[in-house]
């Protein structure tokens, strides 16, 4: 891997990836210096959740570990939460409850 692998509390797992993974719970408003410039988190990002490394277009393949993990269902801005609300599986639909955002239903930062 070349270049930076860490952006504040966010990890880049593979150079090919278009998502970064939170290694700690990260509060809304936190400034993160992405390659395209600084962004402020639009919401709390719980540990192990993902944000966009850069702007992602609808239909783009989401890459993590350098491998495809799904397809963007809408435009995703750099620094935005990437999860069940804006990506889908290329295989079977994801089963989720209301706590899928990682902060409701007993899950807290």
């Amino acid at each position: 891997m070349s270049g930076k692998s860490s952006f504040g509390p966010f990890l880049l797992l593979s150079d090919k990836d278009n998502v970064l993974v939170a290694r700690a719970n990260s509060p809304e408003g936190l400034e993160v210096a992405l390659e395209s410039g600084p962004v402020q988190l639009g919401r709390d990002i719980p540990m192990a959740h993902k944000i966009a490394r850069h702007d992602i277009a609808p239909g783009d393949v989401i890459l993590k570990y350098g491998m495809p993990i799904g397809i963007a269902t809408e435009a995703i801005d750099a620094g935005a939460h990437v999860h069940v609300h804006n990506i889908r599986s290329a295989y079977t639909p994801t089963h989720m409850l209301q706590d899928a955002d990682g902060r409701s239903a007993g899950v807290s930062l």
Binding site: I62, I69, V82, Y91, T92, T94, H95, M96, G102
Partner: peptide
């Protein structure tokens, strides 16, 4: 069966799709 090998808690824990869970 209509479901992947994916529980609701996986999504709350930041996993978005079965292929993301699989790679991990």
């Amino acid at each position: 069966l209509g479901y992947g090998s994916f529980a609701a808690g996986n999504a709350a824990g930041g996993l978005s799709t079965i292929e993301e869970k699989s790679l991990g």
